[in-house]
Amino acid sequence: MLKKSVTVLAPAKLNLSLDVVGTMPNGYHDLDMVMQTIDLYEKITLRRSEGLNLTLPGSFVPVNDKNTAIKAALAFFHYTGLLAGVDMTIYKRVPVRAGMAGGSADAAGVLVGLNDLYDAHLSISELCAIGAGIGADVPFALLGGTCRVRGVGDLMKALPPCPECWFVVAMPSVGVSTPEAFARYDTMGSPVHPDCEAQEQAVRSGDLAAVCAAAGNALEHCSGAEETPAICAVLREHGALTAQMTGSGAAVFGVFDDEDKARAALAALKPGYKQCYLCRPTRGGPRVTVRRPLKK
């Protein structure tokens, strides 16, 4: 069936742990992380076209050649050799400069959507190879679920699903620049170094308390996000098993084993923060939810 358009849902991610374990010869930081996709989605609609266009309704994210969605489309057409185009509309729900990989989700969603729209039949390995050239988090954004991720995001190991839980996520009023966060880390270091191996084993054994006990983010101390401690305090006061920043910031989340406690925490945070979410862990990356046939 030739398709006129497809719609894709691409999930955001949280870092259940993030450690900086060294510096690579190329100057990039060597990371060790456990990453988790959640049911907060970017909605991406792709339509057959002769050109290449991107629309971001209601978003202040710039539409230019640096946008990950445009990079993904160009990389897909280059790899496949298809002489085609696409009109892309992305309804952004994931906060920007949050450490939740919204841009990577966009790129992953575009790759998955174009693969389906044009029946290119690329494997997930091929999509990940394309994605790695777009951004460090794109391969994980394609795979989704629960993963141990190392290096600069290029070494991934799929784990069993995260134990059942609820995440309450709050975005502070000011975002964090990833390069600036790592630059501050180089200057300040961090007193926090989570045990990612212990967390992986806790995920494997389905022990949520142990997952949370091994959590932590080495970038949180030097993020410069002033609201993080206050948000973490509210989350813990309402029963979060752990609370921390995700990625390079600035979003903060708590992990709950009780939905009522999670909803109470969400209600406590909403008056002070416009972007607050109650989320669950998901078991995969972007998925096509709507296919519209091309009329003959």
Rank of each mutant, 00 (worst) to 15 (best):
A225G: 15
M88Q: 03
R150A: 12
L219V: 08
A75W: 00
A233W: 10
A265E: 06
V203K: 00
L18K: 00
S248T: 02
G58Y: 10
Q201C: 08
P25D: 12
D87K: 09
T178W: 03
L14S: 00
P95D: 04
P271E: 13
Y273W: 13
A101Q: 04
V169Q: 05
C232P: 07
V176P: 00
C162E: 10
C162P: 05
V96Q: 10
K71G: 00
R236S: 10
K295R: 15
M24I: 12
E226D: 15
L56K: 10
L18M: 11
T187E: 15
Y41N: 00
R280L: 12
T68K: 07
A75S: 11
D260Q: 15
Q201R: 15
A251N: 05
K296I: 09
P161F: 04
V288I: 13
D87Q: 11
D257I: 04
V255T: 12
L208C: 08
V8E: 02
F76D: 00
P139M: 12
M245T: 09
H238V: 07
F167D: 01
S59N: 06
V149K: 03
P191I: 14
K157Q: 15
A84Y: 04
L127Q: 03
D257E: 14
V252E: 01
A213D: 13
A10D: 00
A101F: 05
M35N: 04
N64K: 13
L54D: 07
A98R: 01
L241A: 10
L269I: 13
D119R: 12
A265M: 11
P57W: 13
T289P: 10
G109M: 06
M100I: 02
V255D: 03
V6T: 02
V290M: 13
V61Q: 09
H29L: 10
G216F: 00
L208V: 07
N53R: 15
G151I: 01
P281E: 04
L114G: 02
L127R: 00
T80I: 11
A10H: 00
K295T: 11
P163C: 08
E50Q: 15
